[in-house]
Amino acid sequence: MRKILVILLTGVVAVGLMEACRKADESAPDTQSLTLNVPQGWPQPENIFSSNPLTQQGFDLGKKLFYDGRLSKDGNFPCASCHQQFAGFATFDHTLSHGFNNQFTTRNAPGLFNLAWYKEFHWDGGINHLEVQPLAPITAPNEMAETVENVIAKLKADATYPKMFKAAFGTEQINSQLMLRALSQFMGMMVSSNSKYDKVMRGQSSFTEGEMRGYKIFQANCASCHKEPLFTDQSYRNTGLPMDPFLKDAGRMRITRLSGDSLKFKVPSLRNVMVTAPYAHDGRFFSVGAVIDHYRFNVVNGPTTDPLVKNKFNLDIFAKNDLIIFMRTLTDSSFMADKRFSQE
């Protein structure tokens, strides 16, 4: 009896001591963890949060940074200046967005949602991790035109940021890594999966006759590149758009330097397509109808034009209209109105 008691006591003391030491080592801040929910039927997201655990405090910090003009040189260009929530975080009604000193960007700003599922970012796929994406617009002279060094100095000089970094990461030592991780938490949590299409897929709603006809046309003509459920297969393709003589944008070739990648751009998601006009990498199409007409009549065949579009789409005007009606079901208005992602 006594021996059992001794062994038990020894065990309790040992466990207690180990716990005490572990706590002292970690000094984890008192954070509230968040979970990235994987919508039903979706693939697993990329493994981007294993070294950057999602917390409410990290998300809140990321949101403040996303809406803060001080990330830009003159204070006028927060991330949100080109990524507007009501436009699915694309730029509303702008072929190209505006940056520092009355300059234009060189590509159409994409909508921001479901980023945790993306392997690469930008129209040319030059960015290989969500965390390092913000470095591109922050430092581009025609976008936010700032240096990372200056941004960090501004954040350090602020009254609120050191506290928020402390709350999120347990340290007031602001550095670029923690800033980028906070932004990654905010952007990575933006999930858009509640459109009518999603409700139909979940059995909570049903397509009208026109929407159903459009869905079938979509599946037959569009779905191999605009693959469900993300509505992109994340590949790079030349869709037969002639090169703009002013922008001279060779797309993916800029990254790979392979002539076979000339004029290829990332397949954009069609989710929220109705609110993210204009379309294509340089915003040359002002309506979804104009994009469909491109595939019906205007595909230019060159050495890298995708085989799936080079014969043009044989769609009559009724099919085109049904397709548009279907694409309206991809608008997730609850995402556009989600206060979690709105400026406070």
């Binding site: 981007i48 070294s51 950057n52 930008h122 030059g126 960015i127 290989n128 991790h129 969500l130 965390e131 390092v132 470095l135 591109a136 922050i138 430092t139 581009a140 240096t147 990372v148 060094e149 960090i152 550095n175 670029s176 890594q177 980028l180 991780r181 990654s184 800029r254 990254i255």
Partner: peptide, 24 residues
């Protein structure tokens, strides 16, 4: 380290040794 997101210390992108448009 070229594909694992934001790094710090000697690898801080602030040091000007990181391609922002073509990660690496």
């Amino acid at each position: 380290r070229n594909v694992s997101g934001a790094q710090t210390g000697a690898l801080d992108p602030m040091l000007g040794m990181f391609w922002t448009w073509n990660s690496g």
